[in-house]
Amino acid sequence: MLVDAHAHLLPHDYPADAPECFPRMEPIDGDTARTLLFGALKFRARDVFFDAERRVEAQDASGVDVEVLSPMPPLLRYDLPPADGLSLARHVNEFAASLCRTHPQRLLGLGMVPLQDPESAAAELTAIRDQGLRGVEIASNIAGESIGDERFLPFFAEAARLGLAVFVHAMPTATDRLPPAAMGTYVVGLEGALAASSMVVGGTAAQCPDLRIAFSHAAGGYPLMLPRAQYFWGGSWNEEPVDLDRAVAPDDGPSPLEQARRFYYDSLVFDHRAIRYLVDLLGADRLLVGSDFPAMPREDPAARTLRAMNLPPDALRRITGENAFAWLGIDPPG
């Protein structure tokens, strides 16, 4: 069983009477693709983004059994007025639910919410659950605000109460520390690290211990920061017993590593050495297969690197399938 837990969808179109701030999907002459226009964004969207039969064909071609589909991240526009953000989210969620109903054993969907209005976002989670969607995708920052800020705590608490999974997708923000060309590479890694860190240092992870949350691209640089955080917390090297005499900022709460090991991480890190580190530090039960398909091409075949690492069979089985179902809170098939 191979589950791609990080794959994206785009609606085929939008209502003719949609607000001007909505995206548009324009046909391309002589092509099954469509052009997504959303503000300054212009993107050629292949039909596999919105055609269920093409998705299943693509799965079969790459050896994928199940995809977890989340909205293409540019749709997460937290700068929209809340009412418009809610209307957009509902349209995308309805499309996602409809797409997944065509092949419910192969396509599992996540919705989106207008998290610029945390109260509205939390209230919308019930509708997402009732549509048959398995969770919700959010960006790694909310218009520049940390997801670990206390004002978003009720949203995460409600997701945990409803048993919905959360997928945090790294989204670049404007920075003058790196050139624009780094937005999709280094800044994504920084964003993932900031998002995961904020959930711990902001207290959300400790207050929502049952929250099932996953981070794209292994939360960027976060796993490499954890041993230092562990030392500051408990004064230990290499996870030796706690030595509070050496601790810089002792805390009687859960350790940084304990909290990090409650999260899930997709293993889209592009190198077997990085995956090995994630397995060693976080555990094989915390990793998911992810591809960013079809925004990015999958390995050929999917999970080729993972399968070539000679991981123990039980570890490989967890990473390639079982962990995704545990994150989503559903039983694996058969």
Rank of each mutant, 00 (worst) to 15 (best):
R276A: 15
S236E: 12
L190F: 07
M171Y: 00
A139I: 08
G144F: 07
P313S: 12
F167T: 01
N141M: 00
A5K: 08
I147K: 02
L164A: 01
A96P: 04
R77S: 13
D117K: 03
P332D: 07
S62D: 13
D314F: 02
D252Y: 00
I319M: 11
H6E: 06
G144H: 07
D130E: 15
H272I: 09
G63L: 10
V136S: 02
V66F: 01
C208V: 15
A302Q: 06
W233R: 11
E137V: 11
A229S: 12
G253W: 02
V200T: 10
T175E: 10
G235D: 01
A193H: 08
N323Y: 10
C100V: 12
L316V: 07
Y264E: 03
R246K: 15
P297G: 03
D51V: 06
M25R: 08
Y231C: 04
S146I: 01
P294N: 08
M225V: 04
L125V: 06
P19T: 03
V48E: 12
E20L: 11
E299L: 10
Q230M: 05
I147C: 04
D29W: 01
R34N: 06
A7D: 08
V200W: 02
P82W: 04
R317Q: 14
A165E: 06
R177I: 02
W233S: 14
D245R: 14
Q259C: 05
R129D: 08
A7E: 09
R286D: 02
R90L: 13
T32P: 06
P209A: 03
D31G: 04
A52L: 07
P172G: 14
G189L: 10
F263G: 05
R261T: 09
E124W: 01
W233H: 15
R228E: 06
V248K: 10
A97P: 07
L133C: 04
P73K: 09
Y186S: 11
F155Y: 13
Y277A: 14
